[in-house]
Amino acid sequence: MLQSILSNLSIILLMHLIIQALNNYKKHLPNMLYLFLLVMTVSASVITMFYLPIEFEGYRVDLRMIPLIFLAYFGNWRLTLPILLIVCVWRVLIGGVGTIPGILFGMIGPTLLTLAVYKNNKFSSSYLDKILLFTACWFISDFPIIFIIPNGLEIFKSIFFLRYTSLLGAASVLYYFVLMERKRYNLNNQLEFIAWHDSLTKLLNRNKFFEIVEEKRKATNENHYLAMVDLDYFKKLNDTYGHVVGDQILSEIGSIFKNYENEYVKVGRYGGEEFIIYQGHTNFDQAVQYLEAIQKEIRTTPFYIDEDLSTYVTVSIGIAELKKGMNLQEAVKRADQNLYIAKEKGRDQIEASEVHTKRISITVGAE
């Protein structure tokens, strides 16, 4: 019996290991292939346990419900129900005594209960909450024994302790590994964020920004634009209020930029008080309008030095088109040239003379 329990547990942990590997390579797999492999992994694990039953007083069971409950608990119904259907059909094809009760009470009941009660990821729920869930699922699975088979009450009394503790113990072991993987995943995301972002503004650093831009320009033939943004008179601001205030303003401007980011707009800190903006899937007029909106919000936002003192800042912007086949650094150079022109013209402007043969200069002074 112990050997059978350990065999079932080994299958469950192997399933977790494969899922962990799939999640690690998820970014490199097409989404449909990832989902297919995930469905096959969980289905194969449940089906394998059909052939490795655990005998309690001559009554044969297994730990098949554990992968299904975990999937329903941490996943969603779109992924859980197809797997539930696959394993139920397989169990019907195997046939034998107890097929229908095993499907209804051993798989469908616990899975649907979990889906009904837990609609979202519940890492934050208490351990008692999880114990109660597995207790309820165990009860759904085993209590019908009393009514379905001869001498059901005696069999239930003789196996319930070992059956319940084996289910709860195996589930606890799996949850421990899931929790450790979750912590590793969160730590890895934190380390990636630190490696890819500027520590002060929380915007993308220059290297990661260029990497993302290259990926996006390869993914679509739509128009692409780069804009260089520079804070006006930032040295004077630092000299007047100090570098601590200057850093605070840079951080707050970074937050403004973050509000404008989306799938087609990315912002990075280029260095010092300079920022760089990528816009894709747009035309020139829309790109300029987007920059105008950012420029206006920065211009009209009060930056507080202390409770009674605030200041206002403006930005100058140069925009350039990232044309097909153009070197990324060439586009940056053209945007930087336009930024220089915008500053020469009095600052707080958007300059796009390099985008079209006819010079385009947009002055958006304070209203």
Rank of each mutant, 00 (worst) to 15 (best):
M1L: 05
Q3H: 04
Q3T: 12
N8V: 10
L9D: 05
I12A: 02
Q20M: 11
K26D: 03
K26P: 00
H28C: 02
M32I: 09
V39D: 01
Y59F: 15
M65P: 00
M65Y: 01
L71H: 00
R78N: 05
L81Y: 02
L93C: 07
I94H: 03
G95F: 10
G98P: 01
T99N: 03
T99M: 13
P101Y: 06
P101F: 06
L104M: 12
T114E: 07
L115S: 07
L115A: 03
A116G: 15
V117G: 01
K119R: 15
K119T: 14
K122S: 15
S126C: 04
L128F: 15
L128M: 13
L132S: 07
W138A: 12
F139L: 15
P144C: 08
I145H: 05
I155H: 11
R163E: 08
Y164C: 03
V173C: 06
V173H: 07
Y176Q: 06
L179R: 14
M180H: 10
E181T: 13
L187G: 00
F193S: 07
I194D: 03
H197G: 09
S199L: 09
K202E: 14
N205A: 10
F209W: 15
F209S: 02
K216L: 13
R217F: 01
N223H: 11
L226M: 05
L226P: 00
M228E: 06
D232N: 13
Y233S: 09
K235V: 10
K235E: 08
K236N: 14
T240H: 07
Y241K: 08
Q248A: 11
L250G: 04
S251M: 09
E252R: 15
E252W: 01
S255Y: 03
N259R: 14
E263N: 11
V265Y: 03
K266P: 00
R269E: 09
E273A: 06
I276W: 09
I276Q: 05
Q279I: 12
Q279A: 09
G280R: 11
H281F: 04
N283H: 12
D285C: 01
L291D: 08
E292I: 12
E297H: 12
E297L: 12
F303Y: 15
F303W: 05
Y304W: 15
D306Q: 07
D308I: 06
D308C: 02
Y312K: 14
V313I: 15
T314F: 07
A320V: 11
G325N: 15
M326F: 07
L328Q: 11
E330C: 03
V332N: 02
A335D: 09
G346D: 09
R347L: 06
I350S: 07
E354H: 05
S361C: 13
I362Y: 14
T363P: 00
G365K: 13
